[in-house]
Deep mutational scan, measured.
Amino acid sequence: KNAAQIVDEALNQGITLFVADNRLQYETSRDNIPEELLNEWKYYRQDLIDFLQQLD
């Protein structure tokens, strides 16, 4: 998997990933985040941060 796929997957589930103060953050109206997504975000944290910062 790559960062773009993970960001896309999150968006499809109503979750927006973004970077604030060099930390990976998310916004969602969901009550909870599936644990497998959280684990994936932790595992790919630096890739996601790098990818999202390139988009800014």
Rank of each mutant, 00 (worst) to 15 (best):
E27Y: 15
L11N: 09
V7N: 03
D8T: 14
S29N: 12
L55E: 09
A3K: 01
R23Y: 11
Q25I: 08
Q46S: 07
L38F: 08
D8S: 14
V7D: 01
L24E: 01
Y44M: 06
E9H: 07
A20I: 14
N2P: 11
R45E: 15
A3H: 02
I33N: 02
Q5A: 08
L55T: 11
R45L: 15
Y44R: 06
Y26A: 05
D31G: 11
L48F: 01
L17H: 02
V19S: 03
L37R: 03
T28K: 03
E40M: 08
L38Y: 07
E36L: 07
K1E: 02
L11W: 12
D31E: 12
I6Y: 02
I6M: 06
Y44L: 03
R23K: 13
R45S: 14
F51T: 02
Q13E: 09
L11Y: 11
W41G: 01
I6R: 02
N12Y: 10
D21Q: 07
D56V: 11
T28E: 02
E35N: 08
Y26K: 01
Y43G: 05
P34G: 05
A3L: 06
E27C: 15
D21Y: 06
A10Y: 03
Y26V: 05
L11I: 09
Q54N: 07
N32Q: 13
P34W: 03
K1F: 05
Q5T: 08
N32L: 09
E27K: 14
K42P: 02
N32C: 11
D56Y: 07
S29L: 13
R45N: 14
T28W: 04
Q46L: 10
K1H: 04
P34F: 04
I49E: 04
D21M: 06
Q25C: 15
Q25L: 13
F18N: 04
A3C: 08
Y43A: 12
T28I: 03
L11T: 08
R23F: 09
L17T: 03
L37D: 01
A3Q: 02
R45Q: 15
N2E: 08
N2Q: 11
L48I: 13
P34M: 03
I15H: 03
L48G: 00
E40H: 04
E36K: 09
D47H: 08
E9W: 06
Q53C: 12
D56L: 11
Q13L: 15
L37G: 01
L37Y: 06
R30K: 08
A3D: 01
F18G: 05
D50N: 12
F18C: 13
D31I: 10
D8N: 14
R45D: 09
N39L: 13
F51P: 00
L24I: 07
Q25G: 09
I6W: 02
N2W: 07
Q54G: 12
R23L: 14
T28G: 06
D8Q: 15
L55C: 09
A20W: 12
A20Q: 14
I15T: 02
Y43F: 11
F51H: 07
A4H: 12
A10P: 00
L11V: 07
E9C: 06
L11Q: 07
W41D: 00
I49A: 02
K42C: 15
D31R: 09
G14D: 05
Q46R: 08
Q53H: 09
F51M: 03
L37M: 11
D50W: 09
Q54H: 12
L52K: 00
Q13M: 15
K1R: 07
P34H: 04
N12F: 11
Q54W: 09
Q13Y: 13
V7R: 04
D47L: 12
W41R: 00
L52D: 00
W41M: 07
Q13S: 08
L11M: 10
N22A: 08
P34N: 06
L24W: 01
Q54F: 10
D8W: 15
Y43W: 11
K42Q: 14
I33L: 08
T28F: 04
D47C: 07
L55V: 11
I49Q: 04
Q53S: 14
A20V: 15
Q5M: 09
V7L: 07
